[in-house]
Design a protein around this nucleic acid. Structure first.
Length: 279
DNA sequence: GTCCAGGGTAAGC
DNA sequence: GCTTACCATGGA
């Protein structure tokens, strides 16, 4: 057990934000997190205190970086002009939302699956893949499958996980990684532009999926993935395009807040009060 | 029954 | 360089 004070962390927002697909609330109010072949249960205690069911060494080496605890999220609001009411509202609504530093392989496959799927549907597919091709973990959980496991998987068995037409994307990508054609860890050395270019070599990966992997696995906070929700927000609140160049080093974090708020029911209510487009 | 989801690809211009 | 049909599946 390890108790840790972490300001500005809301596990509910993170779990529901659509950046990860294997973090779930338990009936007790705790959260189960599975990342790669690791799992941890986190119990919130009061406002900023969390109990991790692991030792301090595992917390320091694994979960501290995973939850991006070194980044200051509280100062984000000061970077945003007061006139940008939508972005200010997004930051207030999703207070405690963080950008996780996930495993590149798991994130790559998860977001290849994500195209034209709802978040609950993605979570279902990911769980099917883990149960079918992942190693067994304690307490009946399953690790995310290795590149080798998915590269060798039977095509019909993959189809049965609900992948649909994405099956050949997953197989093709898994084979490229399993054969060592691309080293996902070595890509950390590349610039943003080079990293996006290399990720787009995988089948089923375009600019949007590449930018999600850059943001959620490689901690590239300048990445600004545009999905249908963000395009909608840009149309409604920014006359077509959000000025990401005004936020070097944080645009991607703001994107996640805008995505999460723009997709919520609270945004509908907020819009009725504020009416006109923002900046 | 219809519509939509954290889009990509290949064909056409 | 740019649009446009097509792609499987589950949930609302």
């Amino acid at each position: 057990m390890h108790k840790q004070v972490i300001p500005h962390m809301d596990l509910g927002h993170i779990a529901a934000s659509g950046q990860c697909f294997r973090m779930n609330a338990l009936p007790s109010g705790a959260y189960q997190v599975i990342a790669g072949d690791r799992q941890v249960t986190i119990t919130p205690e009061g406002r900023d205190t969390f109990l991790f069911d692991c030792g301090k060494d595992i917390f320091d080496s694994l979960w501290h970086p995973y939850f991006d605890i070194g980044t200051d999220y509280a100062s984000l609001a000061s970077l945003v002009p007061k006139e940008d009411h939508f972005l200010q509202a997004s930051l207030a609504y999703a207070r405690g939302l963080r950008i996780l530093r996930q495993d590149p392989w798991e994130t790559l496959i998860s977001f290849i699956l994500s195209q034209r799927k709802s978040i609950p549907a993605i979570k279902g597919c990911v769980e099917n893949l883990c149960a079918g091709f992942g190693a067994s973990l304690p307490e009946g959980a399953f690790a995310f499958p290795t590149p080798q496991a998915l590269a060798l998987a039977d095509e019909r068995a993959l189809q049965a996980c609900g992948l649909g037409y994405r099956t050949r994307y997953v197989q093709g990508t898994a084979r490229m990684v399993a054969e060592g054609q691309v080293d996902l860890e070595a890509l950390r050395l590349l610039s943003d532009g080079e990293l996006q270019e290399q990720l787009c070599r995988f089948p089923g990966v375009g600019v949007k999926v590449a930018q999600c992997v850059m943001l959620f696995a490689y901690a590239r906070f300048n990445a600004f993935p545009r999905d249908v929700w963000i395009l909608r927000v840009e149309q409604n609140e920014y006359h077509g395009r959000f000025p990401e160049e005004n936020y070097p080093g944080t645009a991607g974090i703001l994107q996640q807040y805008m995505f999460y708020f723009g997709k919520s029911k609270e945004y509908i209510l907020w819009k009725e009060q504020h009416g006109q487009a923002g900046i």
